[in-house]
Write a protein that binds this DNA or RNA. Sequence first.
DNA 1: CAGTGGTCTAGACCACCGA
DNA 2: CGGTGGTCTAGACCACTGT
Lengths: 238, 238
Amino acid sequence: MNKFMLIYNQMVDKIETGEYPPSTLLPSENELKDSFQTSRETIRKALNLLSQNGYIQKIRGKGSVVIDITKMNLPVSGLVSFKELAEKMGREPITTVHELSLIHPDRELTSHLNPHAKDLIWKVVRTREIGGEKVILDKDYLLKSAVPTLTKEVCEDSIYSYIENKLGLQISFAKKEILIEEPTEEDHSFLDIDGFHNVVVIRSQVFLEDASLFQYTESRHRPDKFRFVDFARRRPTV
Amino acid sequence: MNKFMLIYNQMVDKIETGEYPPSTLLPSENELKDSFQTSRETIRKALNLLSQNGYIQKIRGKGSVVIDITKMNLPVSGLVSFKELAEKMGREPITTVHELSLIHPDRELTSHLNPHAKDLIWKVVRTREIGGEKVILDKDYLLKSAVPTLTKEVCEDSIYSYIENKLGLQISFAKKEILIEEPTEEDHSFLDIDGFHNVVVIRSQVFLEDASLFQYTESRHRPDKFRFVDFARRRPTV
DNA sequence: CAGTGGTCTAGACCACCGA
DNA sequence: CGGTGGTCTAGACCACTGT
């Protein structure tokens, strides 16, 4: 692990356990540099990570203030798999695989996934059950050229974990779009959605570390179970 | 302007104009260092900004790939005022101020805004009209201690611009939460919402550069006009 | 004024990629 | 093997804050 990452993780711990309480100042960069026996730029990398993730606010001439995260909710934002998310929330999720097949892309899918001429595509349809109700319908499309094999068991567990841990691929970033739509026939047949007039649709393109697009996902949520939190800085942290 | 910011802006231009085309490699950090007559760390700051904002993907041992932004949509994500947003989309927005008053906080508002004992709060209720329809209802609450005066004209233009340009305050970050709710009486009376069964509610806490909370906003959107795009990296850029 | 964070530099070593 | 980006260092100067 990198030095700045170790320092970052230690400081996250100290903030979350209250050793660095909210609204107080962290030790100065020079003090941290000495106590961690490193250079100031390395300390600054760790502090910038803390800043990006909403733990501190740096103020020139004063110091770094610890931000109160009590009501900050969990950082759902970013790129998190359903399983990681459900586990963070302490729920035991149930995933049901309704379809797992290899298809040829139609025109619409081609526009989202940019496959090569004869690429086959994995199509995976799953529902997610929380508290006894099916509230999420996920339709994933993955390039077979990137993910040669895929099984029902993998889809019931976590495709992300399979890709990163078993295949050794690195997922690097995603573009997402969140919209509200009316439920389709498919939503009605797969989800417990009676009495709801809208679904939240999240369309994502997911990219590997070489910037190649390998997955397109449409995730359809019952609106009462949807929640998205976001921490946004107005100016960049460098 | 900082050197790395100048370099960043120039490179954004070159990417957006196609001088650095999608899926090609940028010049290496050493080449950029020479051509911009600077140090490699400064180049790296600019490249990290490009990476954070979805313009490039850095690949160790190879170089920095330009990401295809053609379908990338505008970066709506982050902290952008309604006016900035509408102008980016080329629409002429109409803002109507329905209420501008000073109130004492009730218990719920206190929990969102943490005012001091006798702080008064500006309450601003506005609707946003696009294409002849009222589609957004904004309810803003601002600490009078941070914003001493507020006029109808300012609220019709942009409160953010007033705060940053006239008052000289720096808005630094926001925590947001996006939820789907059923329309209230108030939604029905202020918005053109007949036939819609849900509204998208964005609750935000906005903070100044000294990490002090000064604004709480509830922004209620008609679901058909709501769209949120997001670019998320799985690993930090440092 | 001393102390804080912000920027910039020059140099070093490393892990990784492709020829 | 040379070139790429990733990390780390030590030092310098700056702008800003408080006393």
